[in-house]
Amino acid sequence: MVKQRAQRGWEWLIERAIQVAGAVAIIFVLMIFVFLLRDALPVFKATTARELLAGKDWLPTAEPPRFGFLPLVLGSLYVTIGALALAMPLGLACAAFISEVAPRWMKEVLKPGVEVLATVPSVVFGFLGLLLVGPWLADVLNLPVGLFAALGSLMLAFMAMPTIVSVSEDAIRSVPAALRENSLALGATQWQTIWRVVLPAARSGIIAGVLLGVGRAIGETMTVLMVTGNAAVIPEGLKGLLRPVRTLTATIAGEMGETVVGSPHYHALFAMGLILFLIAFLTNTIADAAIRRSGRLGR
């Protein structure tokens, strides 16, 4: 009887502890949002939302200062989308190869190998891009400068790949073997089976992997700060990929230390943080919806 009561008390304690842990995660997110908002909103004393979002010039120290986010937002988009365009097909192909095609010994080497790539610090990628890849690409492509948007994309692709590969490979591997057998027994080739059955069956895991990769790419600061040239100009067309850009993250990291706390510039940087936060929130929500939608047929 006593033992039972003690057990029930213990049970209660554990339940509460789990509840608190769950609540803490949500509270953190809310608090980050509140603090960002608190330090971002005063920027509207110095400028308008329209100027902020559509302004073409980022000249925070000019007189009068101009707080146009457009070049920075576009810079972030260029670098991120470029990274995604490289990392997604490559990562998926790599994941499919590891789980479906490679012989066992190769699997055992490749998977940990790719995962090691995820542990390389971002500053190392920046370093490699800055000193090795950038100058070489500038030489080959005949560019004026060795620091440009696509170089950032390339480096970010390397960093996002391990996540995409690892998560998608897990998802692909967990597709029941019976589905593959059924497909092959209908006269499908291995390639047809991978493309038409295995990848669609693993899609929610693949979407999750790609989005985790995007998360890494859009939030990445150090590498892009080092290799994208930091020119706050609006990139134009595809050619913009080969010109220097500056991303939101690089701007915050580069300028936060040099602003006067409480100045409009300071608040503008917080507004950028808010935008990044909202982008991340939006990607997650879209991903969630996508997973749920694709899961409907799969359930």
Binding site: N182, L184, G187, A188, P200, R299
Partner: peptide, 21 residues
């Protein structure tokens, strides 16, 4: 082998529909 399996179809022990319509 793909052509062979087209001629010789197989139904398995547990039904395994593909996750589609």
């Amino acid at each position: 082998v793909a052509q062979l399996r087209k001629r010789v179809g197989m139904v398995f022990q547990t039904p395994n529909p593909f996750p589609m319509s």
